[in-house]
Amino acid sequence: MVELIPIKSIKDIPFDENLFPGTPACAGCGGLLALRHCLKVLGKDIVIVNAAGCFTLLSIYPFTPFKNSWLYTAMACAPAGAQGIRDALDILIKKGKLDPKEDLKVVVLTGDGAAYDIGLASTSGAINRNLDFYYICYDNEAYGNTGFQWSGATPLASKTGTTQPGRLSPSGAEFFKKDLFEIWRSHKPPYLATISPSHPVDLHNKFKKAEQYKGPKLFINLSPCPPGWATEPSHSTILAKLAVDTGIWALKEAIYGDIKHTHIQKKFKSIEEYLKEQGRFTHLFKPQRQESVINKIQERVNKYWHSVQEYTK
């Protein structure tokens, strides 16, 4: 394996864009910002397989912000669609109809609804078959495209279209977010990582590293969502950074199942700073402060980091 020299500064990120501006995405979409960085590394010789979700609306024929090919599938089965495309490319190469140098990378792109809920079985199948593909999940922690309803990725206490805080459920969403990283990691894929639009250098290096592996290469991006999170569109990157700084979004990677944290904060900010920034958590502070819920979220973050070796040693 070739020795990789990771980039150190944002100045080292290539200037070339593979995602053009003027998309129908919402202003300040954290998923789109991360995708832009992902495509800088992936290049333009790719096929994106998009499950139904917000980003289905990026490419509305005859308009597209992409340089690459693009296919959308039913919500449950983008990784299955990726299997079909990979097979077709392999057959073309085998028959000598496609020069291996012109081979395309197959990239699945889905939101958290597809990744955490309805498409989980399809992803599990693709990882198990060691399908050579990338998976980028833009996780805005709810079904954004249908009006921000709860999903398996919705964190405890978030207000969504179907978890309205009220007399009967003052905290909003009642469950903790599913740990998709661990679900995927249990399959021991060659490469798996969490990314954030606020850490483009980390993102860049992770994609570069993933390039070396054949098989599933999966990424989960925490994507601030101004309309759903009720935040300022201009604050998306700040918020994504705050998620890392408070420790609620851990930047990490796992190679064949072995975890390494790529960003370790010496001292974490209080989770309250992150929650207070967002309209979807307003009910935790007004009209009455819900101390126990805030503590529960903070404890969960603390517990996580105490279990992390690199942090505790």
């Binding site: 179907t162 309205q164 009220g166």
Partner: peptide, 9 residues
């Protein structure tokens, strides 16, 4: 979506 949202409340 209005149906599921209404039901949730």
């Amino acid at each position: 979506n209005e149906l599921i949202n209404y039901m949730s409340v």
